[in-house]
Structure formats: C-alpha cells, structure tokens
C-alpha cells in the first residue's frame, strides 16, 4: 500500500496549506489554523510513508533506513523542515509563519525533484561511519540554513514594517522580533557547527578511500565556500560588540540560503558523493533518473 504514496501526495498537501494560509490574509476565516494543521498532518503522514518505503528499498532484507542518493537526502531534509514548520505553527498559531516556512519546504522538495534523480551513494566499507556522519551533518546544516532563510525573511519583513508604521492588528501577523532574532542567531551558529562537522568528516571520509583526493572538485569547493562563509558570519556575530544587530544577522542567514542553493545545485549536478560506475536508481528497480512522483 505504501508504494502508492508519491511525491505529489505530500507536495499537494503542503501546497494546499500554503494557499490556505495565503487566503487568511484576504478575509477572516474561522478555524483557519486548524485547517492548516490538518493539511500539514496529512502531508507529513504521506511524506513519512514515502520515506519509510523508499529508504528501505535498497536493502529490503531489514537493514536500517538508509539514505542512498541525493533525491532521498533532499526528501529527508524537506521532511525534517516540514516537521519543524508544523511545530512552529503549533507554537505560534496566530501568526503566518507557515507562509514563510512552507515555501522553503517546497523549495527543498523541488530541488530534489529537479536535480536529485540519478546516481547512488556508496554504501558499506570501512568509511561507512564517516559517510553517515558527513551526510547527516550536511543534511542538518541544510535544514538550519533553510529554516534560517525563512526566519531571516520574516525578521526583515517584520522589522521593515515596524520601522515604517505603528503596529496594531495586522492581517499578516508574525512572531515578535525578539523570537525571530533568537531563531536567526540559533540557525547561524547551528549551521556553522553542522557544516564544520560535515566538512571535517568529508575530509576524513576522503582520506579513508583508495581514490585520490580531488580538492578542485566542484562539490568540495562549493561546500568549503559555504563552510567558510557561515563560520565567518558566526564569528562576526560572536565577536562584534554586544551583537551585530538583528537586521544584519537576518541578511546573513538569507545570504546563507542563497549560497546553499548554489552549493546544492553544484553538488547534485556533479558526481560528488556518488559511487563511480554505479548509476542505479534510488528505488532499486527503477531506472536511472526516474523518481517516484
């Protein structure tokens, strides 16, 4: 039964939740938050079923869930983002946080659909642990960067309109500036830490393989650039007087995301992380480039 769940199922739920959230800006809708919550739950159930089925396929003998290619990696990332989006909506039910978070979830899913269809990561061997740490830490970094982009955008919108005119009852309600700033700082630091772990584990992974270390490879260069950028941004925030100001942090986390999009695109179109000579599909029986939509 789980094989019948496709990307369209949860993509449609998320999209519908986003449209419903946009509708709340037009008119007063009673029970609107609960409808968004319901649509998100439906999407999350479909998303979880999809991941459970497709992450088990490569090793149907009962091996633990394994992310085996860029498509699955991105799908796992969008799933974590969707869960966080759901929790943040529950925390701030009167606000329009989902208007900013759901596009991020949809973007990561979209990147997976467009670029992540072919190739397979290597599995097993002595470097398996390092490969796992490398993949998971970069996944966490991606989640924090994406989340940071949404919070950064919210901060800039909220701060811009608070500068321009007084508050009061607004249709587009956002969390307090303090909360958004805290989230931005968190995302900035968490991204730097996760990227550091990912970068170092990537080097160790490379050293344990028999293949020569290709520093100039597009994926490695892009990841190194992202790591360097986020580390500098985090250090700047730590060592500047007091803090460097909410708007500047917000701009940094949004810039992080733009850089991430470039990096992810570079990684997915390059052969970084994929097993040489192996072009089988993530779903085992499917052909290369075919994704379960």
């Amino acid at each position: 039964m789980l094989s019948g769940v496709t990307v369209s199922c949860f993509l449609f739920s998320y999209l519908l939740a986003l449209v419903w959230e946009a509708v709340r800006l037009i008119g007063k809708r009673t029970g609107r938050t609960w409808i968004t919550v319901f649509l998100l739950i439906a999407g999350l159930v479909a998303h979880a079923s999809f991941l459970y089925y497709h992450l088990r396929l490569p090793d149907a003998a009962g091996a633990p869930l394994a992310i085996n290619n860029w498509f699955q990696w991105s799908m796992a990332g969008s799933f974590i983002l969707a869960i966080l989006c759901f929790l943040l909506i529950l925390r701030n039910p009167q606000t329009s946080v989902s208007l900013f978070l759901l596009p991020v979830v949809l973007s990561v899913t979209g990147i997976a659909l467009v670029f992540g269809g072919s190739g397979s990561f290597g599995a097993g061997g002595s470097a398996a642990a390092w490969r796992w740490i490398h993949g998971i830490s970069l996944l966490i970094a991606t989640v924090f960067i994406s989340l940071g982009a949404a919070f950064g955008a919210m901060y800039l919108v909220q701060s811009g309109r608070l500068k321009r005119r007084p508050g009061g009852q607004r249709k587009l309600r956002l969390p307090a500036l303090e909360f958004l700033q805290r989230m931005n700082r968190w995302c900035l630091f968490a991204t730097a830490v996760a990227l550091a772990v990912g970068f170092v584990s990537g080097i160790l992974l490379q050293l344990q393989t028999d293949q020569p270390f290709r520093w100039w490879e597009g994926g490695i260069v892009a990841t190194a650039a992202l790591f360097l950028w986020s580390s500098l941004a985090a250090m700047w925030e730590v060592f500047s007087t007091g803090s460097m100001g909410g708007r500047r942090v917000a701009r940094l986390v949004v810039a992080n995301f733009l850089l991430l999009v470039v990096v992810l695109t570079a990684l997915m179109v390059s052969s970084h992380g994929l097993q040489e000579g192996r072009q089988d599909s993530p779903t085992g029986g499917q052909q290369a480039g075919e994704v379960p939509r």
């Binding site: 909220q158 508050g167 009061g168 009852q169 969390p175 307090a176 500036l177 303090e178 909360f179």
Partner: peptide
C-alpha cells in the same frame, strides 16, 4: 480585544511586536 489607551496600546500591541517577555 483591542486596547484604546496610549499606555495599554504601547505595551500590549507595540512592545509585544518586539518582545516575547
């Protein structure tokens, strides 16, 4: 639900957009 005095608006509507606590 909506405040109408300057001090109450200042705290419950303006400051609340900035601070959670």
């Amino acid at each position: 639900k909506r405040r109408v005095s300057i001090p109450s608006v200042a705290v419950s509507e303006i400051a609340a957009e900035f601070f959670e606590r």
